[in-house]
Amino acid sequence: MQVHESVGHPTELDRVYGTEAAYAGTSFLSPEDLGSLRYGSERMNITADSTTPEGLGTFAFDDEGVPASREAIVEAGVLRGFLSSRETAAQLGAGRGGSMRADGWARMPLVRMTNLHLEPGEGSFEELLADVDDGLYLETNKSWSIDDKRLNFQFGTQIAWEVKKGKLGRMLRDATYTGVTPVFWGKLDAVAGPEEWTLYGLTNCGKGQPGQEAHVSHGAAHARFRDVEVGVSA
């Protein structure tokens, strides 16, 4: 969900150009940021891939007939691409579309996420933990809220665990964390390796007026962030 809310939606080019402003909101990104904006740390690699086997956002071609593809969105922490339609890609002068999807016959295609992945790094979950002297392990977002430009977010998690000297400790209740998108991603200092990478699904990504629900997937492995603002109940 962190990838979905703080990378997926802000890189939708229709949001960048303002056509979703009234309902879903806009984006902190601007067209000029392509190729230069530092989105996160060098460990951050995000890919939009509508060819992912078993992905909920996998197809042969999108609703404009653009063939499925795999494109870099963030490479080594730098913004390299947007999710786009043929129209918005032409407006930007970069990309080729490929993200236009409608949720049914009675809806107009919009720029939607397909499968958006945090690419794996290296090492195991235990190796990530081993380098945490005092922290939290947060598991499964259960509530999420982010501002209309996709900058300020606050997520609540299903369950959390104390981490002390590299080991999981006691269970904690009602853990939340908050941050500002590029600051938060800038604190990413490790992503576990391909063996930890899992494809997750989301079937109710809402957008548009009239509203549409998209089915999307996100692949991710355990990731470690430093100095995150958190809140918990013991």
């Binding site: 909101g25 809220s145 501002d147 300020n152 606050q154 609540g156």
Partner: peptide, 19 residues
Amino acid sequence: LHYLGIVDPRGGVLTGMTR
């Protein structure tokens, strides 16, 4: 308000942004 979320259902705690 924008993008509300339920932090604690039983406690009736909500979060979100103004806009």
